[in-house]
């Protein structure tokens, strides 16, 4: 499956899904005007890729300095897709990077790891 790369803009993150290496990342800031439109195709590609994976180790790095409320919901959907893939027999590791001073980001990360318990969740304060 073809890799997915979207360059960062001032209000949307860099998305680098290296499907061949099973290494995925989302980095930067996320407050696009229409988060559902921005993330819609990304989540679709992710699900298509995950559906092809069996017994695969997949790593997702998420390093977002800021995301708006509508992006929050989309991140939740990304985690849902990853969690489903873990249940289907893959091994998902998420590296969650957040500013060490940023409690909101830390709490949101904890929230995700509480909800999606099948995923291996590694918290990194930077």
């Amino acid at each position: 499956m073809e890799n997915l790369y979207i360059a960062a803009t001032p209000s949307s993150p860099e998305v680098n899904f290296d499907f061949a290496q099973h290494r995925l990342s989302v980095r930067g800031e996320s407050y696009p005007e229409n988060a559902a439109a921005f993330y819609g195709d990304i989540i679709k590609s992710l699900r298509d890729y995950l559906a092809l994976c069996t017994d695969t180790s997949i790593t997702m790095d998420i390093a977002l300095a800021y995301f708006n409320s509508s992006s929050t919901k989309m991140l939740f959907n990304i985690f849902e897709a990853l969690n489903d893939a873990q249940r289907a027999g893959n091994k998902i590791t998420v590296n969650w990077y957040h500013d060490e001073e940023d409690d909101t980001m830390l709490e949101f990360g904890q929230e995700l790891s509480d909800d999606f318990t099948d995923i291996t969740f590694i918290n990194h304060a930077v």
């Binding site: 229409n34 988060a35 708006n68 409320s69 509508s70 929050t72 919901k73």
Partner: peptide, 10 residues
Amino acid sequence: SKGAGLGFLT
């Protein structure tokens, strides 16, 4: 809602 209905809560 054009977002997630989370704006005011945020």
